[in-house]
Design a protein around this nucleic acid. Structure first.
Length: 862
RNA sequence: GCGGGCGUGAUGGAAUGGUAGACAUACCGGACUUAAAAUCCGGAGGCCCUUGUGCCGUGGGGGUUCGAGUCCCCCCGCCCGCACCA
């Protein structure tokens, strides 16, 4: 029997799809549209198996919706600006653009044999001048709409390389290349005013019903709306101009538990005190830390007593010390707090360290002892007993107490209730070459003015030197010199480029009219938006998705998107990552050397290199180039074909969960597809033999197979709708087993088997499209299976005549009973009570309860 | 540190609060074969020399319920994000 030859079959059908332009998306008012999008890749070099999994998921949805009669848009592009291209340029002397476009070519070449239903005519890369020209136009429009401004912000500065470092380039407080201790430095930067939309972005989350709850929760927490009290401490011994110290607290109810006040090292008061050399030194030490929140929060808590005192707002005779503390963020609230150690673990740790008092404000109940071993931090919704309250009842919830405290303080003129957000404005300035130039011009007489739109794009120069420190655009000999678009005088260009997150914040809208001379085209955007199904990694749950939601609103405000598209992603699915074990050895210098999976031989006890050197097997983590734990899908395609790779990544693991890659899985996927193929050839031969003969009516066994096929239609459809691809695969295994077990000579079986197998071709088509076409064609399917309408289960073939109910006695399974499917509860109860098993168990007694869950279970409670 | 998630046989996993382990991998046995591969058929959570209408079993401990892998509380472990990685 001939083997299924993926190498021949797959290109054949890919050509057939291309010739028929099956995946070309064009506006068509007569068909409902469906826009499915996977987060586009960064062109890092090669596709890895994680991409394969991601795009196969999108492809299953796209092909399924196509079969359901939708006009499907399924585009692909490249998120092509970013640091790796510059790093490659520095390390290998290649131009970032050459490196990027070469990678894009490689990755496209790797993706095409996968047979994805992508409309490649819409492809673009964000580094294409045609794309970033429109991004610059958007920037100018957003500027005019008041969504962009400039302010000073803190960056990581490498004093040796004279460059700004990304957080990931700061390792243990040192620059990754220079090894020099990183400093914090202030630069004037461009900002998007996303925090102006904080409330809108927060409340609109409620409407995102087809988003995972966890992503909605993360976004809510990120925006971090809090209600609290802002008030001013009267200071004692503070420098000129600091008579008041404003603090913000979300727990004003704990004011009488105050132990100290603390300010950020970046607070103006902290800076004003730097004439004291000790304070200057402390602040400088704090500023040696990186800028990431994680680093600030996990660093050892340190403080410095400034000597300044503040008066407690409720008791002017009560003085509190003011510390500078390294864990206070200048960006949140007022950059100053009061510490309540009894009810905040961090404040407690701090108080212990510096010998500050700990005063309980409330307890869990009237009788609870006064304890201060551990900060008592109950949920704000939980009622507690106040022992040092000053407003409201003795027993109330934290929420009630906060409201009462705010009301009291407003009444007494101590402070005001305010709503604050954790969300900060989005700083987009990057002092790098390989990004979208910010289209602004600095003119001595006109100030900062936008470039004339007619002059867009502001192109990146090709001739740059990346091997010297600093921003390449800044030290390019001519690029920055230009004429002021307003007065025509000599002026200089902005040399900062945009954060690459900007590029990915509107690409989904660009796909609706990718070649237009404007960012979008109204009719196209109105027809195709929103993205009906967006698919991507959960690592983008916050930033990318939040920025995109902001951008969609900004694009609506500036006339580039319709009002209906301000929430651009109707449904979101976050797929898990593909992980793999890591393998490492140490070299003579003790440095860790990583090894790829194909360099390593697994043994029973561990792993070794080919030469027998023992290898340390590390945990299975996200595949990354740096850890070398990557698997190249090309190897699998070469050995087994694209369908095998697609089938494998869809089977076994639920798509939202991480999947650990193992080599054994691919071969079993291939075996299964071979089995489907053998059955197809067998059935095709049976049909040929019986051709022209009288058609036998379907007997009981054939009917049973038809029933199995219809159950598969019902279940696979539900599983695809619910993103349970692994279950859909299991259902298809069951159908294969049913077809294989059916006796070919049973009456009517030839056609029943052919029907079941054609159904299988349709149901597995979204996952293994090439094999599906081949099966479909061999068994008399009409046209291309990719164009065939999705099958519909016949309800008459789904009903069973009887069901088997397990019988529980006191919650433990003791037996089962077969009852007619249409028996009502009373009839089932009677049958259960008459069952010998139950009679014996009851031994003449009357059951206390009899629970019948129709179609599921019976529980007899004695 | 903060926010979010996950934890089920040897393995990947299945299970609207209702028969735990579907389906698959690996494994064991059988058929076919000179043999092997491939293929086909079958077995299988653990325990007991009590084989039963038995007991135990979904990271650990507690709770709600007629009934908990699923809901609630506490704990442990792992993973993701933390604003200049994409």
């Amino acid at each position: 029997m001939s083997r299924y030859n993926a190498r021949e079959v797959e290109p054949k059908w890919q050509k057939a799809w291309e010739d028929a332009a099956v995946f070309r998306a064009t506006r068509d008012r007569d068909r409902p549209k469906y826009y499915v999008l996977e987060m586009f890749p960064y062109p890092s070099g090669r596709i890895h198996i994680g991409h394969t999994r991601n795009y196969t998921m999108g492809d299953v949805i796209a092909r399924y919706k196509l079969a359901q009669g939708f006009n499907v848009l399924h585009p692909m592009g490249f998120d092509a600006f970013g640091m790796p291209a510059e790093n490659a340029a520095i390390e290998n002397g290649v131009h970032p653009g050459d490196w990027t476009y070469r990678n894009i070519d490689t990755m496209r070449t790797q993706m095409k044999p996968m047979g994805f239903s992508i409309d490649w005519s819409r492809e673009f890369a964000t580094c294409d001048p045609e794309y970033y020209a429109q991004q610059q136009a958007l920037f100018i429009d957003m500027m005019e709409a008041g969504l962009i401004y400039r302010k000073a912000a803190v960056v990581n500065w490498d004093p040796v390389d004279q460059t700004v470092l990304a957080n990931e380039q700061v390792i243990d407080g040192k620059g990754w290349r220079s090894g020099a201790p990183v400093e914090r430095r202030e630069l004037t930067q461009w900002f998007f005013a996303i925090s102006d939309m904080a409330e809108e972005l927060l409340t609109a989350i409620d409407g995102l019903e087809a988003w995972p709850e966890k992503v909605r929760t993360m976004q809510r927490n990120w925006i971090g709306r809090s209600q609290g009290l802002q008030f001013g401490f009267e200071t004692i011994g503070a420098p000129e101009g600091f008579a008041r110290l404003d603090v913000y607290t979300t727990r004003p109810d704990t004011l009488l538990g105050a132990g100290f006040a603390a300010i950020s090292p970046d607070h103006p008061l902290a800076k004003a005190l730097e004439s004291n050399p000790e304070i200057a030194a402390f602040n400088a030490e704090c500023r040696r830390m990186g800028t990431s929140e994680e680093e600030l929060e996990t660093a050892e808590k340190k403080g410095f007593d400034t000597g300044v005192r503040v008066r407690h707002p409720l008791d002017p005779s009560w003085e509190l010390p003011v510390y500078i503390a390294n864990f206070i963020l200048m960006d949140y609230g007022t950059g100053a707090i009061f510490g309540c150690p009894a009810h905040d673990q961090r404040d407690l740790d701090f108080s212990r360290k510096y010998g500050l008092p700990v005063i309980d404000v409330f307890k869990s109940s009237e009788s609870a002892p006064d304890v201060a071993k551990e900060a008592y931090v109950p949920l704000k919704s939980q009622p507690v007993t106040y022992i040092r309250g000053f407003a409201g009842e003795k027993v109330m919830t934290g929420d009630e107490a906060v409201a009462a405290a705010v009301a009291f303080c407003e009444e007494a003129g101590i402070g005001t209730g305010v709503t604050k957000y954790r969300l900060r404005d989005w700083g987009i300035s990057r002092q790098r070459y390989w990004g979208c130039p910010i289209p602004m011009i600095h003119c001595e007489s006109c100030g900062i003015v936008p470039e004339d739109k007619a002059n867009l794009p502001v192109r990146l120069p090709d001739d740059v030197t990346l091997d010297r420190p600093g921003n390449p655009l800044e030290h390019h000999p001519t690029w920055r010199h230009t004429a002021c678009p307003k007065c025509g005088g000599a002026a200089t260009r902005e040399t900062d480029t945009m954060d690459t997150f900007v590029d990915s914040s509107w690409y989904f809208a660009r796909f609706t009219s990718p070649r237009a001379e404007t960012p979008t085209v109204a009719e196209d955007a109105a027809y195709w938006m929103n993205v009906d199904q967006y698919i991507g990694g959960v690592e983008h749950a916050i930033l990318h998705l939040l920025y995109s939601r902001f951008f969609a609103r900004a694009m609506h405000m500036t006339g580039h998107l319709p009002a209906g598209a301000i929430e651009p992603f109707d449904a979101l699915f976050t797929q898990g990552m593909v992980t793999h074990e890591t393998y490492s050895t140490r070299n003579a210098a003790g440095r860790t050397i990583w090894h790829t999976p194909d360099e390593v031989v697994r043994t029973e006890t561990g792993a070794t290199l080919a030469d027998g050197t023992p290898v340390k097997v590390g945990p299975s983590i996200k595949m990354s180039k740096s850890k070398k734990n990557v698997v190249d899908p090309e190897d699998i395609i070469e050995a087994y074909g694209a369908d095998t790779a697609r089938w494998f990544v869809m089977s076994d693991s639920p798509p939202e969960r991480d999947v650990e890659w193992t080599a054994s899985g691919a071969e079993s996927a291939w075996k299964h597809l071979q089995r489907v193929w053998r059955l197809t050839v067998e059935i095709a031969a049976e049909r040929e033999r019986s051709a022209g003969g009288p058609e036998a009516a379907a007997g009981e066994e054939a009917l049973s197979l038809l029933r199995a096929a219809h159950r598969a239609i019902r279940d696979v459809t539900a599983d695809i709708e619910g993103f349970s691809f692994n279950r859909a695969v299991a259902r298809l295994y069951e159908l294969t087993n049913a077809i294989a077990k059916a006796s070919p000579e049973a009456p009517g079986m030839t056609e029943a088997r052919a029907f079941a197998m054609r159904t299988m071709a349709q149901l597995m088509g979204p996952m293994v499209p090439h094999l599906a076409e081949e099966v479909w064609a061999r068994l008399g399917g009409e046209g291309l299976v990719v164009r065939a309408a999705w099958p519909v289960a016949d309800p008459a073939l789904l009903v069973e005549s009887s069901v088997i109910l397990p019988i529980q006695i006191n919650g433990k399974r003791r037996g089962e009973i077969s009852v007619p499917a249409d028996a009502d509860t009373g009839a089932v109860e009677a049958m259960v009570l008459a069952d010998p098993l139950v009679v014996r168990a009851l031994d003449g007694a009357t059951p206390r309860r009899l629970i019948v869950v129709p179609g599921r279970i019976v529980n007899v409670v004695m």
